[in-house]
């Protein structure tokens, strides 16, 4: 059994990861991974957005507040944005968000943003395997006492 299959089978955790993917590159990359039957852990739920530049930092924060254990945002590689420069704006906002997440008392490793093109199915698979493993190590997100 390959390492990848082992990683995927080891699936007894109860974590949830929300991924916001831009329609043009990363959503296509996840589609390419699917078309190529590249097996992945099942913890990730994908929300389609037009561009990473559409992401209001409120969305990942809302996901954490509602109990998501990890949030991943992925778009076109820098310079390859379908909308010319949307991902550059996203990069600045999300870089700042990393510090804010830490400030809010959430481990900042629970959040990441990446660039995956529509042809990079294998890269998407590896990214998911690695990210899920990272979140599993952190365990479920702590619930807020009210």
């Amino acid at each position: 059994m390959s390492d990848i299959q082992k990683d995927i089978q080891n699936n007894d955790s109860n974590i949830k990861i929300i991924a916001f993917l831009c329609n043009w590159c990363s959503y296509g990359g996840a589609d390419t991974a699917g078309t190529s039957r590249l097996k992945q852990p099942s913890e990730v739920r994908i929300i389609r957005i037009p561009c990473t530049g559409r992401v209001n930092p409120l969305f990942p924060m809302k996901a954490f507040i509602d109990g998501a254990d990890g949030v991943l945002i992925s778009g076109c590689h820098p310079n390859d944005c379908h909308y010319i420069e949307g991902n550059f704006y996203a990069r600045r906002r999300l870089e700042v968000l990393k510090y804010f997440i830490d400030f809010m008392g959430i481990e900042k490793e629970r959040f990441d943003y990446q660039w995956v093109s529509a042809s990079e199915g294998q890269r998407w698979q590896q990214l998911i395997i690695d990210f899920v493993e990272r979140i599993k190590k952190l365990g479920p997100i702590g619930k807020c006492e009210t």
């Binding site: 996840a30 699917g34 992945q40 099942s42 994908i46 698979q125």
Partner: peptide, 13 residues
Amino acid sequence: ANIREHCSWIHDD
């Protein structure tokens, strides 16, 4: 809802 490329094709369980 994309349950083929993002679900059935990438999972076995």
